[in-house]
Design a protein around this nucleic acid. Sequence first.
RNA 1: GACCCCUUCGUCUAACGGUUAGGACACAUCCCUUUCACGGAUGCGAUACGAGUUCGAUUCUCGUAGGGGUCGCCA
Length: 425
Amino acid sequence: MPNSVRVRFAPSPTGYLHVGGARTALFNWLYARHRGGKFILRIEDTDEARNTPEARQAIFDGMKWLGLDWDEGPDSGGDCGPYFQSQRKDIYDAYFAKLEAAGRVYAEENGAMRFKFSREPVIIPDMVCGDVHFAATEEPDMTIRRPDGSYIFHFVNVVDDAEMGITHVIRGEDHLSNTWKHIDLFHAFGKHPPKYAHIPLILNPTGSKMSKRDEGSSIQSYIDAGFLPEAVFNYLCLLGWTPKGDAEKLDREAIISLFDPKEIHSANARFDMVKCTWFNAQYLRALEPAALYAAALPFLQKERLTINDSAIAERALQSVKEKVSLLAELPCWVHYFFKEEYTYEDEVITKLKAKPENPTLLKELAADFAALSTWDEHAAHASVEATAKRLSVKPGALMPLLRFALTGQSRGPGVATILVLLGKD
RNA sequence: GACCCCUUCGUCUAACGGUUAGGACACAUCCCUUUCACGGAUGCGAUACGAGUUCGAUUCUCGUAGGGGUCGCCA
């Protein structure tokens, strides 16, 4: 059976890609993929004064990073283009003419054009909120065209949804109060409105709408902090929707098959960076060595660490991956594997100086290491224990000492692992 | 102000009208352990308030309070 679901994400390129917008895109994308329908990206750039190329790029980059590919839209083409509203003036003019012919518009003194509301009660059947009733409005008629001939959001949004054959509008609940205006317009065009699903908003930890200043509001900030896209994808899905069953960590395919917009909650959710970070730690640990290396490499390079041996780097990263939550934390856990000069933590210096016998102990360890014919973790570990026995000290006294001397840090991977990766010399 | 949406542990949430109200994150304690972590175990912790319907309400209805949103020649 041919599937006719067509959904869209329609951001306006006036800032960064916001988490709220990203989740709206995500839910639309999930619904399209779940139903085998089409996901369309449309750029709502009718407000020339506020649009920027950077913002437009941030939308593309953010969506690609999250893996939200669009079937129709910029770079993808499609039968309903162009997908930039700034390039669709002819279509809007034609639709405007229909309204004019029907006597539904009139001019202001300065040339702005208003749409005459039908002023009838409206019921919005919403997949999330149920039937939402609005009494006949007493608001003033709405402006749909500026004096310069450019069109306003409500008008272009409806025209494009009609023109592009959008079947389901999944968008933030902040649009619910305006939806009756859109339905009024659909009727004026002689079209059936699409099905609506108004999804809850993402709130900051204080409980108000996420704004630019809030941590995690920009998708770019996740990229910079070293989040994995699949972790953010997973976490965002769980804000306002719960899949059947107990599992929370679900991959893309599982979520696609489980997703059902009827299960979307109607209450707003607060953003929790701690839990989002926890998801990232989970995904990080599940990474294969090669994948971890690939993901971490840009962060290592950013700290100017030069990798001569990628096999060693893979193993080094592997040895600390369960100690961190974000990729950006990795460099300071592994930097001593990649450079000769590194600073010692104050705490470490203090401890090394605390016991005068330390230099002697280290020399004894080195002597025993030198006698080894094989150099692997097992041999290194056994050697340390033998040294301890020979000197009548606890291995537990030697291990931290070695770590301090070799890494300058008080924490890290197992000492034997460090020894092997660093090399016998 | 008018209208719209919403209200279960601190947070995200589960629960055909019948459960000791479940899980996850966080937090605390313990175990594991050369460090830091991971992992395992245990604990802490909620139905906003008030009525009504019902044998029985987290669940249905109404009211109150609180939170959020919309009322632009922004989107």
